[in-house]
Amino acid sequence: MIVPTLENNRVKLSLLDLSNYEHLLSIAQQKDLIYYSPSDISTPDKLRNYVQVAVDGYYHKTIIPFIVYDKEKQAYAGSTRFGLINWKNKILHIGWTWIAHEFQGTKLNANMKFLMLQYAFETLEFEKVEFRIDERNQKSRRAVEKLGATLEGILRKDTVMKDGFRRSTCCYGILKEEWPTIKSTIFKNF
C-alpha cells in the first residue's frame, strides 16, 4: 500500500512510523491532550507502543497513520490516521487525532480533515467516512459537526477508558454523495 503525502499550503500529512515518531515526544506529554481517548501516550515507551500498533495496522492495510506538520508554524503538531479501513465495503474512520494545545483553534485540524476527506472520497473512492467521539468531548463533537458530519447514533458504554470509566461513543458519518456539497460550502476556501 502506497501512502500519499497529503499536503496543502497549511499542513503536511506524511506517514507516521518508528523513524519519525520522536518528533511527537514533547507533544504527547502535554496535560489532557488525549483525555477522551482510551489510548495512552504519556511516556516515550507508551507513545512508541501507540505508534507500533499503527505501524502494524498499516502493514495489515487497516490503518494509515500520519504525522502532522504545520507549514505555517514550521513545526510538528501531532498525529491523525485513517483507521478501521474496510476495503470491501469502502468505509473508513478518521480519528486518533491529537494536536498540541498551541495548534488547536488555528484551523490546522480543518485543513487536515479536508485533505483526508478529499483523499478518502476522491482518490480512494470510498463510500463513507466515519468519526467516533467520546460523548463527553463537546469540543471534538462540534468540530466534526462543523465539517458537515451527521450524528448517526450513540453506542452506549462501549469503550473502556484508561481509568476504567465506560464511555459512550458518538458515531458520525459523511457519505460520498454528501462530499461535493460539503466541499463546496464548508471547505470552499481550501
Rank of each mutant, 00 (worst) to 15 (best):
F190R: 12
N109H: 05
G105A: 09
C171Y: 15
K107I: 04
G164K: 02
I34D: 03
W98G: 09
T123G: 05
V11S: 08
D40I: 10
T106M: 06
K90H: 15
H60F: 04
I67E: 04
S39G: 05
I85A: 06
Y119L: 05
V144F: 10
E152A: 11
L13T: 02
R166L: 04
L25W: 13
I85Y: 05
K88N: 09
I186K: 14
E135R: 07
L6P: 02
D158Y: 00
K71V: 06
D56I: 08
R10T: 14
I34N: 09
K128C: 11
L24Q: 12
K90Q: 15
S39T: 08
N189C: 03
F165I: 03
R141Q: 06
K90C: 13
R156S: 02
N89R: 14
N20A: 05
R156E: 00
P38Y: 07
G153H: 08
N111S: 11
Q30V: 01
D158G: 07
D70T: 10
V3K: 08
I34G: 09
N9S: 09
F126N: 12
Y21R: 06
T150I: 13
T80I: 06
V11P: 06
Q52R: 10
K88Q: 12
L15F: 03
K183C: 03
W87L: 05
I133F: 04
L13S: 03
E72H: 10
K113I: 11
L155C: 07
T181R: 13
E122F: 11
K107Y: 12
P38T: 05
T181G: 11
I64V: 13
T62V: 15
L33N: 00
A75V: 07
A149G: 01
F165E: 07
V55R: 03
Q29E: 14
R141V: 08
F82M: 12
